[in-house]
Design a protein around this nucleic acid. Structure first.
Length: 270
DNA sequence: CCACGCTCCTGCGCGC
DNA sequence: TGCGCGCAGGAGCGTG
C-alpha cells in the first residue's frame, strides 16, 4: 500500500537511474487499470529523453518534451527498473523500455493508473484541485486551522481529503492523530490553532520517519524483489486493535470511518 | 459548497 | 485439507 513516503522513495530511485535516458518503446500488456491506459504511448514516447521524474501528491510524473506520463500506484502498484530480459510476471501491466532496461509497472489490483498528458502538468484535471504538499512550508498550523473552520467532518477524514493536504493515507492518518493525541472523530472545525499546529507537526514527522526508514533500502526497492518488511516501522495505533497502547497501556480500539478502519487509544486521544 | 457512500480489483486470512 | 467468504484500501465520482 504505497503511501507518500513509498511513492517518494520510488521517485528518487527511478529519477536517479532514468533521468536523461531515452525511451525506446512502451509495451502495454493490460490497459485495464483504473482508467484505460491510452493507446499510442509507444509512438508518443519513443525517442524522448526523460527530462525530469517528479511527484505531485501520490502521482509520479515522467516529463518529456512531448508531454507527461502520469503514473499512480494505487493500492498495490510497484514501479521498478529492471533488465529488459527480466521474465514477465502475472500483473506486469506496462513497460517503459529504455534499451536494455525497463521501467515496469506491476499492479495486482489494478487501482493504479498510467495516463498521458501533452499539455502543462498543472492543467491536468486530476492534479488541478489538489491541496498542499504536507512536507512544504505551505502546510502549517494556520493553514490547517483556516481550512478546517466550519467543517464538521471528523479530523481523520479531513486530513485524508486531498483537496486539503495530499499524501496522508489511511495508515498515517491514524498514526499522526495518535502522535498528536487527537481523537479521530473530533470535528475538524473544533480544533484549536494550537492543536492544528501539533497535528501538522506530527503528520510531518510521521511521513519523515517513514521516508527515513525507506531511504535506507532505496536500492532494493528499485532494483530487486525486496521491499518486504519495508516500512514495517513500529506503528503506535494502526492494525493494533485490542493490543496495549505503547504509551499508556490501554486498549487500542478500531472504528470504521468513511469505510476505512481507524485505530486509536481512547485514553491518550481526546 | 459540503457530507457521505459507492466503486473499481485481487490476494490473503479466517472459519467451518 | 479445502473451499468460500469478507476484508483490505486510494481516490474519483455520484447523490442528496
Amino acid at each position: 500500500m504505497p503511501e507518500l513516503p513509498e511513492v517518494e522513495i520510488t521517485r528518487r530511485g527511478i529519477a536517479e537511474l532514468l533521468t536523461g535516458q531515452t525511451i525506446t518503446n512502451v509495451v502495454v500488456r493490460n490497459d485495464r487499470l483504473r482508467y484505460p491506459v491510452p493507446a499510442g504511448l509507444a509512438e508518443q514516447l519513443s525517442g524522448q529523453p526523460v527530462l525530469r521524474f517528479v511527484r505531485r501528491a501520490k502521482y509520479l510524473i515522467l516529463e518529456t518534451a512531448a508531454g507527461h506520463l502520469i503514473v499512480h500506484l494505487g493500492m498495490t502498484g510497484t514501479l521498478r527498473v529492471l533488465p529488459a530480459s527480466t521474465p514477465i510476471r502475472l500483473h506486469d501491466h506496462v513497460d517503459i523500455v529504455f534499451g536494455d532496461r525497463v521501467l515496469r509497472l506491476h499492479d495486482p489490483r489494478r487501482f493504479g493508473a498510467v495516463l498521458w498528458h501533452p499539455g502543462p502538468i498543472d492543467d491536468h484535471p486530476l492534479l488541478r484541485s489538489l491541496g498542499v504538499e504536507p512536507l512544504t512550508d505551505a502546510f502549517d498550523g494556520s493553514y490547517l486551522f483556516n481550512a478546517s473552520r466550519q467543517r464538521k467532518t471528523p479530523i481523520k477524514l479531513f486530513i485524508m481529503d486531498a483537496a486539503v493536504v495530499v499524501g496522508v493515507g489511511n495508515i498515517y492518518a491514524s498514526e499522526s492523530l495518535f502522535r498528536a493525541r487527537i481523537h479521530p472523530k473530533t470535528a475538524a472545525g473544533r480544533l484549536s490553532l494550537a492543536r492544528c499546529e501539533r497535528l501538522v507537526a506530527e503528520i510531518r514527522s510521521t511521513l519523515t520517519d517513514a521516508l527515513a526508514a525507506g531511504g535506507s533500502t532505496l536500492r532494493d526497492f528499485v532494483a530487486s524483489d525486496g521491499a518486504r518488511g519495508y516500512f514495517q516501522q513500529q506503528y503506535f495505533a494502526y492494525g493494533r486493535e485490542g493490543e496495549a497502547c505503547r504509551v499508556c497501556g490501554g486498549d487500542i480500539r478500531r472504528v470504521v470511518m468513511g469505510q476505512r478502519s481507524t485505530f486509536y487509544c481512547a485514553a491518550c486521544q481526546r
